[in-house]
């Protein structure tokens, strides 16, 4: 058997397969990006129709993130929100307490993009008056934990990635997983 010839054929075959799969992958990614951009534009125009406006730049891209294990500590004096690895760690529903990051969970998963979060926010509040004349000042990816169910208890808990929307109507959080 001519091994040299056989390997040439196999190399050619695998180059063709890799090119086809690569093309397929990039076209898939391109379509997804196009669809997302289109949805973002639609959301933007819907917001404008309702008199709402976005006064901040939209962070781009999607991240793969893990959950964040946090320690819940008493916070007698109101301090700046804690940060972990550059992300703000925001605790809701437990006044007088603060969440401090300890470590990430083992696995990561894809998160919503900022425009995706905005779409989810609009979909959630499409029937509300909140959107009318709403001004969105800031969109930021944070680690968020809502502990209304466990108010006033110390211990450890789990914060999840969420988009924080600072608006003229107050703060809103959209879960990013």
């Amino acid at each position: 058997m001519d091994w040299s010839k056989a390997t040439n054929i196999l190399i050619a075959l695998f180059v063709a397969v890799d090119l086809a799969l690569g093309g397929l992958y990039f076209s898939q990614q391109y379509s997804l990006a196009q669809a997302e951009a289109e949805a973002a534009r639609a959301t933007q125009s819907y917001l404008e129709e309702r008199g709402a406006s976005v006064r901040c730049s939209m962070p781009e891209g999607k991240k793969r993130m893990a959950v964040l294990f946090v320690s819940i500590v008493k916070d007698s004096e109101p301090l700046e929100e804690s940060r972990f690895d550059g992300y703000r760690v925001v605790l809701s529903g437990s006044p007088g307490y603060r969440a401090e990051g300890i470590s990430y969970g083992d696995a990561k998963a894809g998160t919503l993009s900022a425009s995706g979060a905005l779409q989810k926010f609009v979909a959630l509040h499409a029937e509300d008056d909140i959107l009318t004349n709403l001004r969105i000042d800031d969109i930021e990816l944070v680690y968020w934990l809502d502990r209304q169910d466990l108010q006033g208890a110390e211990g450890q808990d789990t914060a999840r990635p969420a988009w924080r929307l600072r608006t003229s109507q107050g703060e809103f959080f959209v879960e990013a997983f």
Partner: peptide, 10 residues
């Protein structure tokens, strides 16, 4: 499992 909320008390 890696994405479930894990709550520990004191």
């Amino acid at each position: 499992f890696d994405f479930v909320r894990r709550i520990s008390d004191s």
